[in-house]
Design a protein around this nucleic acid. Structure first.
Lengths: 220, 220, 220, 220
DNA sequence: AATGAATGAGATTTCATTCAT
DNA sequence: TATGAATGAAATCTCATTCAT
C-alpha cells in the first residue's frame, strides 16, 4: 500500500479510562510497531509484543481484540507520519515543479525514516486482500486527482497530449514509490552520504516527471 | 522481487529416478504453486499441497526437504515464464523504441498471466531478507546495464544530459513494474477489454520512457 | 550413568511465578519421571506426560523447552535421592569397614527404590554421548578419591601393594554398582525376603572389598 | 546384556536362495551393525542401513521382517566374537589363576574391539524387557556355575568360607564387565599405550579376584 | 486493569513398512 | 530379487486466546 493509504482504526475493546491505562496502551502500540517491523506480522508473537511493552500477555487483550487489530492500530497511527508523493498537488500560485520537488523530497525522507514500516505494509498487502483493496482505491483516487491536473496541462498545451492522463499519473507515482522501495526498503543506495543520496533521488525523479509530461518536439 | 529475479533452485532430497517419480514431483510442484498463490506462503499447508497433487502427505517430503524448499523450486521454475521489462536491450539494428515497446508488452502480458505469483513474490520479499537481497542485486544489475545505454545516448545528444543514468534507469524500470502491480496484482484496470487495457499500458509507459529521457528544450 | 553423577539442570523457559505455576511444574516433573521410567525416554510421549500431570499438552512447554530438557530436570532432581557407594569416605574416627558397610547399604537401598530410574539412566547413557561423558568424569573423580585412600593403606602396609590404586578403586566401585544392577534393575534376586536379600548383598560386597584390598600372605 | 548372552536368531522371511541373495543379506547385516553401532537402535533408519549396504530400501524387507529382527540377527552374529569373562572355568589340570588371567584378557580384548556393540547392547537392555530377561538368565547361569567352583574351593579351605558363593561369583563377574565398560565404552583409559592399559586391567582385576576369594587371616 | 498460566487445535516433519514395476 | 516411490500414522512443538486470581 502506498504509505498514506487510510486505514480504518481498529475498535479497541475499550478505550483506556485511567491514566495508567493510557500509558499501557501506548506502550503496547509502540511495542507492536517495533515487533511487527522486526519480525513481520506473521512471525510477530503477541507474547513478544507484551514483553516489549513491559506488561503481561493478558494485558494485550485488554486493549486489542486480536493481533490483527493491533496491526490495524499501528498502521493507522503511522499514517500521519508518512506522506504521499505529490500529495500536495501543484497550485497555480507557485512554480508547480517546486511543489513537486518538495513533495518528492518529503516522500523520500519519510520513506527513509519508515523503511521497516513500509516493508511491513508490503507484507500486509501481500497477505490481506482487504488491505490490497484499500491500497488500490487510494492509488486510484490519487491518480484521478493528478490526472485532472495533467489533462488541464494538456489543454493548455503544456503537456504531451498523447498521454492517457490517468495512466500517466499512476505510472509516475509508481515510479516514485517503487524507487523509494529500492533505495530504502531494499537498501540499494548509491553510496553517497545519506542526504546527497536523497537529493539525487529527488532531482532525478522530479526531472523524469517533468520530462515525461512535456510536449515533445518529435511526433510519433 | 521483480518477476525475473533469479532464484537459486532448492536442492531436492533426490531427483526422481523413475517416470512415476517424475510425474509425482511435477504434480507436487504444480500443486505447490497453486496453493502458494491461493493461500500465500505462510498460510499454505503442506497437507493441502499434497492433497492438491493427489498424493500422501509424506510424499511431499520425498521431493522437498521443507515447505521453504518447495517455494524455492516453485519460484525457480516460474522464472522462465516471467520476463523482464526491457530485458532485451535495444540493438542498433532496429528502432530502439520498437524494442522497448515489445519488451514492455511482454512484461505486462507476463505479469497479467502470473499476477498471483507476483503477489506471492511480494510476500516472500517482505518476509525473507535473503530474497530481498536477490531482488536488490538483480534490480541493480539491470539498472547498471540500462544506465550504460542511457549514458551513450547522452553522449550522442539523444538523451537529457542532466539525468543520472543509473537512477533514471532504475526509476523507469520501477515505473513499469509497479504499474503492472497496480493494474494486475491489485486489479486496478481501467475497464476496457483486457487487451486494449494492456495496449494502453504499453503505450503510456513507453511514451513516458521516451519523453523522460529525451533532451529537453527548456533548461532548468 | 551411575546414579550419583551430577547432571546439569536444564534451564526451564521460566521459573513459575505463582503458586499455581509451582504446583503445575511439580506435577509435570513427577509425571515426566513416571512416564520416562515406564516407557523409556524414546517411547515416552509428551502427551502422556501432560495427561499424567493432569494438564494440557501445551502446558508442558510452559516449563520445558523440549522433552530432552524435561529429562534433564528429572535426572537432576533425582540426584539428591540417589547416593553413591562409598560416597562417604571412611574417616579415621570410626572403623572404616563399618563406614563402607553403611555406604554400601545406603547404595543398595537407594538402587532398589529407584530401579526404574537407574534403567532410564542406562538408556540415556547408551543414547547420549554427553551424558556418557558426565558419567565417565564422575566415575573417574570418584576413583581418584578412593585411590588416594588405598594408596595410603598400602603405605601403612594395610593393603596389597601390588594393586594399582586407581584401577582397583574403579573396579571395586564397578562391582557394587553392577551388582545392584543385576539384583534390582534386572530383578535377579535370590528369593529371600527383600531386606535379607539386601543385607546379603551388603555383606558379600563389603567382604569382597575387604578381602580384595588386604595384603595377601601369598605372592605372585 | 553381557556380551555373550545368547540371542535367538530372528527368523528371516526367507533364507537367500541365490548367491546374489547371500551377498545382499550379508551386506545388509554388516550395514545394520555399522548403523546400529553408530546411531543406536532407535535412531537408526532402515533407509540408512540399506544405503550403507548399497541396496534399495525395499530389499531390506526381503531379508528381515522388521528393524527389530535385523537387530536380533546382528546381535546373534556378534555373539561368536564376544567372549565371557572366565567363560572357561578353571580346570584342575592347570593353574586356575592362569586360566582366569587368560579369560580376563580375552574378555577385555574383545570388549575393546567391540565397544560400540557393547554400547548398543546396553541400549537394547535398557529398552527391551525381553532382552533384559535373557541377560538376567545368562548372568544367573554363569554365576551358578562359578558358585559351584567357589563352594568347592571353600570346602577345600582355599576360599573364604564367609562368602556367599553365588553372590560372590556374580559380583566378581560384574566387576570385570563394568570395568571393561568404563575403560572401553566410556573411554576412561589411564593413558598408557593400549596394550599396556589392557594388561593393567587384566592384572588388577585378576588380583582382585584372587584376593577377594582367598581365606582371610583375620576374622570378622 | 493487570497478571501469567492454561488451553488445545493444528502444523510440520519423520520413517517403518508396503507395493507396483 | 531388486527397486525406490508411496503411504499415513504418529509425535513434537507453537501460539493466539482465555481465564482464574
Amino acid at each position: 500500500m502506498s504509505p498514506q493509504a487510510p486505514v480504518r482504526a481498529g475498535s479497541s475493546p475499550s478505550a483506556p479510562a485511567t491514566a495508567r491505562g493510557v500509558r499501557t496502551r501506548a506502550a503496547l502500540v509502540a511495542a507492536a510497531r517495533t515487533v511487527f517491523e522486526r519480525d513481520g506480522f506473521t512471525d510477530a508473537k503477541v507474547t513478544d509484543i507484551a514483553a516489549e511493552a513491559g506488561c503481561a500477555t493478558g494485558s494485550f487483550y485488554t486493549y486489542f481484540a486480536s493481533k490483527e487489530e493491533a496491526l490495524s492500530v499501528v498502521l493507522y497511527e503511522a499514517q500521519r507520519e508518512v506522506l504521499d508523493p505529490a500529495a500536495n498537488p501543484p497550485t497555480n500560485d507557485e512554480d508547480p515543479w517546486d511543489a513537486i520537488t518538495a513533495s518528492h523530497r518529503a516522500y523520500f525522507a519519510s520513506y527513509r525514516r519508515n523503511a521497516r514500516l513500509m516493508l511491513l505494509m508490503e507484507q500486509v498487502a501481500a497477505i490481506d486482500p482487504e488491505f490490497r483493496e484499500i491500497r488500490r482505491r487510494f492509488g486510484h483516487t490519487y491518480a484521478e486527482r493528478t490526472a485532472r491536473t495533467i489533462a488541464e496541462l494538456q489543454d493548455r498545451g503544456l503537456a504531451d497530449p498523447e498521454l492517457d492522463p490517468f495512466l500517466a499519473a499512476r505510472a509516475l507515482r509508481a515510479m516514485v514509490t517503487r524507487t523509494a522501495y529500492y533505495a530504502y526498503a531494499l537498501g540499494d543506495t548509491v553510496g553517497l552520504d545519506d542526504d546527497a543520496d536523497l537529493e539525487a533521488l529527488v532531482r532525478t525523479t522530479t526531472r523524469l516527471w517533468r520530462n515525461a509530461l512535456q510536449p515533445t518536439p518529435y511526433d510519433r
